[in-house]
């Protein structure tokens, strides 16, 4: 790892100021960033830890929405997001227990790994990402693999999810990394169904609109019979081909619909 300065501010304003330094980067729980730095794939001049900002931690629910502070760990979401059980269950299966005690929701969403779980949960639920200076709609936020609407130095201070009538996340675990080989988040809202897929597309998380249309008129696994996704643009790697992932996401979507609660 190349060396860097370390700073741990106690407020969002101080963190924004610290991130103004050239090549400074925010540090969430570090469960992706630190391994990346070890591989010398990145060389920040300064890491600005967000873990000392009390305002960015915690879970609160009201008015059909749940808001999670950007520096809240996966373990805390798993334990405290009882107002949205499918979200708590999603958080409870990220990585392993020690990773969940450090990794944060803001860090995961800022990184937007194409196989991460939270992007599917947020895009599937609908909602918004709150930063130090604006709110970004979930549908505008994800812009491709490892790419988001965040500007340089912008910090995710909180994330708001719309709580659906029913939801479920099905994750086919890649057992070495604990990431999703494919993950499917299905949410049945009063005004329609949202289906978000992670782990499959070369463009990162995406909504499967054909399935959404079918499920919005008939919320049952049978409504998906005959609907499939093309393997074009699906990730092919040593764990599975694009065709395999395209098939798997159909199966997992059916399972998610059947299990939605």
């Amino acid at each position: 790892m190349y060396n860097f300065e370390f700073e741990k501010p106690g407020s969002v304003a101080d963190a924004v100021a610290a991130l103004g330094a050239e090549d400074a980067q925010a540090l969430g729980g570090g469960q992706t960033l630190i391994p990346t730095l070890k591989q010398r794939l990145n060389q920040p001049s300064k890491l600005v830890s967000l873990s000392g900002i009390a305002d960015m931690k915690g879970v609160s629910a009201s008015g059909g929405m749940i808001t999670i502070g950007g520096a809240t760990t996966h373990a805390t979401v798993a334990a405290e997001a009882s107002a949205y059980p499918a979200l708590a269950a999603t958080a409870a299966h990220i990585g392993d227990p020690a990773v969940r005690n450090r990794g944060t929701i803001g860090g995961s969403l800022a990184n937007n790994d194409p196989a991460a779980c939270y992007p599917a949960a947020l895009l599937g639920s609908g909602g918004s990402v709150k930063t130090d200076n604006r709110d970004i709609d979930a549908d505008e936020y994800f812009q491709g693999m490892f790419s988001t609407a965040l500007e340089e130095g912008e910090i995710i201070t909180g994330v708001t999810f719309n709580i659906p009538e029913k939801a479920n996340y099905q994750k086919f675990v890649q057992p070495a990394s604990r990431f999703a080989l494919v993950g499917v988040f299905v949410a049945k809202h009063a005004d329609g169904v949202r289906v978000a897929i992670t782990g499959a597309s070369e463009d990162g998380v995406f909504r499967w609109s054909e399935a959404e249309t079918a499920l919005s008129s008939n919320f049952s696994a049978a409504a998906l019979d005959g609907i499939s996704v093309s393997a074009d643009g699906m990730i092919t790697d040593l764990h599975g081909t694009g065709a395999y992932r395209a098939h798997l996401l159909g199966i997992l979507t059916k399972r998610a619909v059947a299990a939605a609660a």
Binding site: F6, L27, G30, Q31, I34, P35, K38, L47, S49, A75, D96, P97, A98, V99, N101, R102, A176, S177
Partner: peptide, 22 residues
């Protein structure tokens, strides 16, 4: 690489991978 867990310690009572924390 934060996969094996041989480095797990407790920080403020919680298990963490000490090779993946500054």
């Amino acid at each position: 690489t934060s996969q094996c867990g041989a480095c797990v310690v407790h920080v403020d009572g919680e298990a963490v991978k000490s090779c993946t924390m500054l």
